[in-house]
Simulated assay, not measured.
Amino acid sequence: MSDLVARTGRLQQRYEAGCRLVAGCIPFRWKDSEDSSDAKSEKTVEVLMINSTSGPGLLFPKGGWENDETVEEAAEREALEEAGVRGELMGLLGHYHFKSKTHQEEFGSEGLCKAAMFALLVKEELESWPEQSTRQRKWLVIPEAVKSCRHAWMQEALEEGFSKWCADNMEG
């Protein structure tokens, strides 16, 4: 599988009204609760986070949405490149605006970004992936993930977008 190479460069980046368009996801899995003392076992949701390469705190996989792919393909590609996971996109959690400090000068206008964030049900965790030399993965329950989030907008995506999506999609 030699096609597992991270894309680099910004030539294919999409922009909208001066904002760099970004796609990302909150990878998650179901974990049966350890406490199976009562008959109906509770399922716990865990989310997968990765370390930031530019400082403390954890992140969800995300990156530039490129001209030759759909926003869903971009979100899936970032999950594969940065976190080494493949899965099924389950729904759009929302759009989040933020400023990218790393790309401020490069893009001129303040480094404004608009991220489309999805819920991604993880089906496969790869043993090797493009950014494994700089990224560590960590599965966390939602309260831990909220505390570990490096960026406020990712915390919002988790607390409002993902938690609401879970509540709407988990009954039954």
Rank of each mutant, 00 (worst) to 15 (best):
S54H: 10
E131K: 01
L58H: 05
M1A: 14
C166R: 14
A75G: 07
L92N: 10
W30R: 14
T44Y: 04
E156Q: 14
G111M: 06
E66T: 15
W65Q: 01
L120M: 07
G63K: 00
R29P: 06
E171V: 13
Q136R: 15
E88T: 13
G172D: 04
T70A: 06
K62N: 10
L59R: 10
I142S: 01
W30I: 08
Q136H: 12
D168G: 08
A6M: 10
A83L: 01
T44G: 02
L48T: 03
F162M: 04
D3W: 13
N51L: 00
P130A: 11
P56H: 07
A152C: 01
M170K: 05
L48F: 02
A145F: 00
P56Q: 10
E42I: 15
W129H: 05
K101L: 13
G9S: 12
K147N: 09
A152Y: 08
E16P: 00
T70F: 06
G111D: 06
M117V: 14
A23H: 05
H97Y: 13
L11G: 11
R20Y: 01
E81L: 01
F98D: 04
L21W: 02
A157W: 04
R77P: 05
L158G: 06
P56E: 11
R137F: 06
S109G: 12
Q104K: 13
G64S: 13
Q136A: 11
H103M: 13
